[in-house]
Computed example of a mutant assay.
Amino acid sequence: MKQIIMNETDLDWRKWLKNGDQYLKAATPKGEKNRFGADIRYNLLSMSLEGYVMAILDYHKKLPDNHTFIDLINGLETVMPIDETLKKRILQYENIQSICSIEKYHRSSPTKEELDDLKGAITEISMIAHKTCV
């Protein structure tokens, strides 16, 4: 079996980090009102999480098994310890949209409180990414 070898041009943690920042900013309401509904904000936050975790993993020349919340967090744990409370905060929201499974396809709309909590947890991951990727 041929081994895949990554070099510096294969991935770029800087792009992932920038994407994470842009998606987090887009998911953040300006004032009391957001131009996006709850479902789109959830997806923007999910893409932000992906950007930050992928930046850290790429920085360490690692890849996750997949891009679900659990796979991203498990991948992150291969390069650094993750606070158990932070991990649980993120993983509790993975099933708001289970769209990768054919048998168990499920979508629901997150509440404002869920979005606020998820955003707070992802903001913590953002700070970790910005400290790690230098």
Rank of each mutant, 00 (worst) to 15 (best):
M1D: 07
K2I: 15
K2E: 15
I4Y: 10
I4M: 12
I5H: 11
M6W: 14
M6Y: 14
E8G: 10
D12V: 12
W13H: 13
W13F: 13
R14A: 06
K15D: 10
K15E: 12
K15P: 05
W16M: 06
L17I: 01
L17F: 04
K18S: 09
K18I: 03
N19Q: 06
D21Q: 15
Y23G: 07
L24F: 01
L24N: 02
T28N: 00
K30S: 13
K33C: 05
N34T: 14
N34A: 12
R35S: 00
R35H: 04
F36R: 11
G37P: 02
A38S: 14
A38R: 10
I40E: 01
R41S: 06
R41H: 00
R41Y: 02
Y42Q: 07
L44M: 06
L45H: 04
M47D: 12
S48Q: 11
S48T: 14
L49N: 01
E50F: 01
G51N: 02
G51E: 08
A55W: 02
A55I: 10
I56D: 09
Y59N: 13
K62S: 00
P64G: 02
D65C: 11
N66I: 03
N66G: 13
H67Y: 11
H67G: 02
F69K: 02
L72R: 04
I73R: 07
N74V: 05
E77R: 09
T78R: 03
M80P: 05
P81G: 04
I82G: 00
I82K: 00
I82F: 00
D83Y: 05
D83C: 03
E84M: 00
T85K: 13
T85F: 08
T85W: 02
T85A: 11
L86G: 02
L86E: 06
K87I: 01
I90N: 08
I90L: 10
I90M: 03
L91S: 03
E94L: 06
N95Q: 14
I96M: 05
I96S: 03
S98G: 13
S98T: 15
C100K: 13
I102P: 14
E103G: 09
H106W: 07
H106E: 10
R107A: 07
S108R: 14
S108E: 12
P110M: 01
T111I: 11
T111R: 12
T111S: 15
T111C: 07
E113S: 14
E114F: 09
K119M: 15
K119C: 12
K119D: 11
G120I: 07
G120H: 06
I122P: 03
I122C: 01
E124M: 08
S126P: 07
S126A: 12
S126M: 13
S126W: 09
S126C: 13
I128L: 05
A129W: 05
A129L: 06
K131R: 15
K131P: 13
T132N: 02
T132W: 00
